[in-house]
Computed example of a mutant assay.
Amino acid sequence: MNKAIFWDFDGTLVHSQHLWSNAIYETLLHYIPDTPVTFEEIRAMTFDLYPWDTPDADFTQITGSRWWKHMERRFSDKYVEAGVPLDTAQQASTHIREKILQKEKYHLYEDTLSVLDACRMLGYRNYILSNNYPELPEMAKALGLTSFFDGIIVSGLVGYDKPRREIFQIALETADFPEVCYMVGDNPVADIQGARQMKIPGILVHRGEHPDADHCLDTLTQLLSIPGFR
């Protein structure tokens, strides 16, 4: 039987404390050490910054290398909005990427590898399905995850962000339309509601209870105890 699990990345398999906001703020501090702009102000300004914040928009023309060019313009706009001079904003925006792609910013949950391995032993094929930057496959390799996965579908490469149907359709096609599949993620909208519209059972992790999820788990290990999962 063809069985597959689609896994979100950040917040599900790994955790990174305010990764993007910290990268934006740390870069600003490098250019303006005495900036009056606070981390809280930066964080408040970034809730509509990323493609996954407006998934209904068409991003199919800004995939791959164009993705970061788009984001650099967005970073620059937010800096200017915070009062940063335009020339400084433009320079700083080009250095955020290198902070985001630092391997040490990401920390595997303690049960990530054991659960991924157990799922493979149970006959499931694992796929990452993530709203993220184009280099996610390289980051997964750097974190020692590649051998546990049969494929990686990332919005920065396909141009669609969860919860759009299109990215889930691409995932299903990549997995050869499995007879049994699950979506495991930490976002009730992008992961759980996105999966539900495709009739994929959604498993919410690390986020407490939510009515839209078929199962809500505190740890990845609890996945192995779901009735009928094996």
Rank of each mutant, 00 (worst) to 15 (best):
Q61V: 02
Q61A: 14
Q61R: 14
Q61F: 07
T63H: 02
S65T: 14
R66Y: 12
R66H: 12
M71S: 04
M71N: 13
R74A: 15
F75A: 08
K78A: 15
V80R: 15
E81C: 12
E81S: 14
A82D: 09
P85T: 08
D87S: 15
D87P: 03
A89N: 06
Q91F: 10
K99G: 11
K99A: 08
Y106S: 02
H107E: 10
L108G: 02
Y109D: 08
T112G: 07
T112A: 07
S114Y: 04
S114R: 10
V115Y: 00
V115I: 01
V115N: 07
L116Y: 00
D117W: 05
A118L: 02
G123W: 01
I128F: 02
I128P: 00
I128W: 01
S130H: 00
N131S: 08
N132G: 12
L136I: 06
L136H: 04
P137W: 02
E138S: 12
E138L: 13
E138Q: 14
A140Y: 01
K141I: 04
A142P: 00
T146M: 06
F148D: 07
F149R: 05
F149Q: 03
G151T: 03
G151R: 02
I153F: 05
V154D: 06
S155K: 04
G156L: 04
L157A: 13
G159S: 05
D161Y: 09
D161V: 05
K162G: 04
P163D: 07
R164W: 07
R165W: 09
I170R: 13
A171E: 08
E173I: 11
E173H: 09
A175S: 09
D176Y: 09
D176W: 10
V180I: 15
V180L: 14
M183V: 11
M183Y: 01
G185W: 03
G185M: 03
N187I: 06
P188T: 12
V189C: 10
A190T: 02
A190R: 05
A190I: 03
G194Q: 08
A195M: 02
A195W: 03
R196M: 12
R196Q: 15
M198H: 04
M198F: 03
M198Y: 05
K199I: 07
I200V: 09
